[in-house]
């Protein structure tokens, strides 16, 4: 054995047994890596197109205090801040739950999964829903200020996750009871890796999110106290 037996590559997604040119990777392996990284980079910098959301739902657009992507990436605090003029676009409607769609770190994930996931959620959530909020240059915690402005008990924040090299289109869902600025990440629940066909499909994700929303409403909390009794994958960030 001087070269790694080819069948071992099937044991892991890791890039093992790569073909070489001298000590370097050969051309095909080098360009395959470049393509994966290019897709991840494009996802990070993709512009959030809200037209598909507007076509399907009643949608209000808001922008965080981060004016552009470069600022957003360096100032997570601004991505969590809702300027007053933006908050003024939101008014309480008496609804109990709000769905927010944030671009996060992958507008590509939002473009692929937000509409079908919301459609799957609508039939499962029940109760009254506020208009869908499309949040630009958003971090997860921006949902706290949005939820407070809408006067809802629960926000479901659907947001593009940080792209991995082989997963540029993963969507996360964060559920927060009584959202208000200052909520800690430990006070949320998360369903992550929504990314069919490789990750969670939309129907399964919607079922898990709805379960968490119903539990949150019944027990009047979200976060680590809810985590222990659910079977869903929890990942906080």
């Amino acid at each position: 054995m001087a070269e790694l037996p080819a069948r071992l590559a099937a044991l892991t997604q890791a890039r093992i047994g790569l073909p070489r040119a001298g000590h370097a990777l050969n051309t095909a392996a080098t360009l395959a890596f470049d393509l994966a990284h290019a897709r991840a980079r494009d996802a990070v910098h993709a512009v959030f197109d809200t037209a598909p959301l507007h076509a399907e739902f009643d949608v209000i657009d808001v922008h965080s205090a981060a004016p552009d992507r470069a600022t957003y990436l360096q100032r997570p605090d601004l991505g969590r801040t809702l300027p007053e003029a933006q908050a003024a676009r939101l008014t309480p409607t008496g609804a109990g739950t709000a769905i927010i769609v944030g671009d996060g770190l992958s507008a590509t994930a939002v473009a692929l999964h937000a509409v079908p996931l919301i459609q799957a959620l609508l039939s499962r959530l029940g109760g009254t829903l506020a208009p869908v909020v499309a949040a630009h240059q958003a971090r997860v915690a921006l949902g706290d200020a949005i939820g407070a402005a809408l006067g809802v008990d629960i926000v479901v924040m659907l947001i593009g996750e940080r792209p991995g090299l082989s997963a540029p289109d993963s969507l996360g869902a964060y559920i927060t009871w009584q959202p208000r600025p200052g909520r800690r990440d430990s006070e949320r629940n998360c369903v992550s890796n929504i990314r069919p066909p490789h990750g969670l499909d939309h129907e399964t994700a919607a079922t898990r999110i709805a379960w968490l929303v119903h539990q949150a409403r019944a027990r009047r909390l979200t976060g680590v106290a809810l985590k222990d009794e659910s079977s869903v994958t929890i990942r906080l960030r």
Binding site: T12, A14, I16, L25, F33, A36
Partner: peptide
């Protein structure tokens, strides 16, 4: 040393 520089 990470396989293919990509930590999965």
């Amino acid at each position: 040393g990470v396989p293919g520089a990509d930590d999965i």
